[in-house]
Design a protein around this nucleic acid. Sequence first.
DNA 1: TTGTAAGCGTTATCAA
DNA 2: TTGATAACGCTTACAA
Lengths: 343, 343
Amino acid sequence: MPATMHDVAALARVSVKTVSNYFNGYPYMRAETRARIERAVDELGYRLNVTARSLRRGSTGMISLIVPELDQAYFAELAQEVIDVAATFGLTVLVETTSGDRDRELEALSGLHRQLIDGAIFDPLALGPSDAPQLGGGLPLVILGERQFEGLADHVLIADEEVAHRAVSHLVEIGRRRILLLGAGSPGTHTAILRRRGSEAALAEAGLPVDGDLVVSTDGWTRDAGAAATARALDDGRRFDAVFGFNDALALGAQWVLLERGLAVPGDVAVIGVDDTRDARFAHPTLTTMSPGRAQIARRAVELLVSRIREPETENGFASVTADFELIVRDSTVAPGTLNSTP
Amino acid sequence: MPATMHDVAALARVSVKTVSNYFNGYPYMRAETRARIERAVDELGYRLNVTARSLRRGSTGMISLIVPELDQAYFAELAQEVIDVAATFGLTVLVETTSGDRDRELEALSGLHRQLIDGAIFDPLALGPSDAPQLGGGLPLVILGERQFEGLADHVLIADEEVAHRAVSHLVEIGRRRILLLGAGSPGTHTAILRRRGSEAALAEAGLPVDGDLVVSTDGWTRDAGAAATARALDDGRRFDAVFGFNDALALGAQWVLLERGLAVPGDVAVIGVDDTRDARFAHPTLTTMSPGRAQIARRAVELLVSRIREPETENGFASVTADFELIVRDSTVAPGTLNSTP
DNA sequence: TTGTAAGCGTTATCAA
DNA sequence: TTGATAACGCTTACAA
């Protein structure tokens, strides 16, 4: 049975209030009192009981990060960043995975863990605007990526249309004309719709047609799904000289199949993704990608959440910040040694 | 202000104890009482306060998983498995990352989060046997991978020597003679030492010499480190026809550099790893690897931890279970179409 | 600057 | 089968 604050107080010959003050950084305390407390704490090996504190305070110092799955590089890397940033605020992160399942997303927001956390950072996959009423009921919430809930919670957004536009423009600039849009297609998440819209705008600006045959759905945004869809497109005899994977996983799956089929990347088909995961750097050839500023996303998300937790009553609207993005050109679009033919 | 158990009790016209019984699956209850409680719960939207329960029970229903970093595929995939298995036991997982830093490993075991958890699953990187006294002081603990603490906690082990032996034997069977051991070398974790030992045993059995030049240290077990060390070995003019990366990340880093330098895999150099991460399946060429039975590891770890939490006083020694492993042959050692020349 | 005492929302003891 | 009541260990008015 571990020592309690009462034990410390008794040994230090002060009241529990004073010991509590000590642990809460209350400044007005005689140096000698402080020293006595410190000695007692050492002697007893005392550690503050966080559960009791939480019960009394009504807050836990924990936030959850709700993502589809950890074994996708993007989410694993995001989780690591969020954990690190949260730690600088003294917050502990509970990582919840949902497999993109609607019920599990709702459960993460309003289930048993609900009262274990002071707020949540949520990367929704299945939930849509019609679920808005169930969005945690007063739980401080920051939504990542999706803009469907704007006005209902704080958001950290990716400029989906612009990112897609830039990616497709890059492919056009290196001379590609028939670009497979991998991850678009019905029904499609809101993110998918926006990235498709941006892609088609870039094609239109370049005076290129949008070929419905080259707008391809995938069953999820994983390497498996990207590989399968690309294989199908090749088997169908569709012709394309570039692939825009709506995330890195899709692009890597596509690239894998292309190489497997003996096609040259980027010689025959150029490939570009989105996310700048570590996997992109270590693909062979290395994958050109749009970096969404993951570190910035994690930082802003935690900051927004912390201020929402501290001042829940700021009813004058919710914040939406959009992260910066950047084109990272690698070998999957511009072969090394090739002089970039960009005008 | 959310409803409490008292509110429910009042509305259902029973005592709080009865409501508590209801939530704890106490079987002796009249159907009508149960129905009244259920109606009151619904009406009030009542949810059990986990913090209060934890305070009263002295346990939280949370366990932590302590790993070096989530953005390594192996750990991300392991975390996902552990979270899923733990959920079947009604346990919540707190994922702690340490960067393999000694202080952070100790902090995860005995810091503030210590009392937030009922036990921990720990994949140590920096801590050694000399830290044993600090191993959580009575915290139920299951250690993964490392056998250095055997006798001090429960273990779920990988058969490091046998795994390495099998990997090297496979390379020998396909005719390789000069095998780079990537990840061995001083100082080296205990795991590294065992895998090196197993590798050298396999070489010895095959009548092959152990060339010190081919035993290569890396700065961590990441793709970056694997790439850097392999590049160095090539630059030094060391000759080898195979690489055994002590994990998939190292092997993938090596493979990446080899391809970058224009060498053929497996034509010039065969590559094999350990872990069977998803990355291995999507490398190009696909990476041959030793599967350590990750699902089994996660399941056994959680099971051991749960029984240790339930019966902390089983002082008659600690359990050590060793996971099964399996060789997964892919294209990085046996090119597709090549008839396997194994005797 | 420090002390007293009343909760926070459960669960456990014991009795009925 | 259910009820009254005392903890669990901390924070926080309020008092001194």
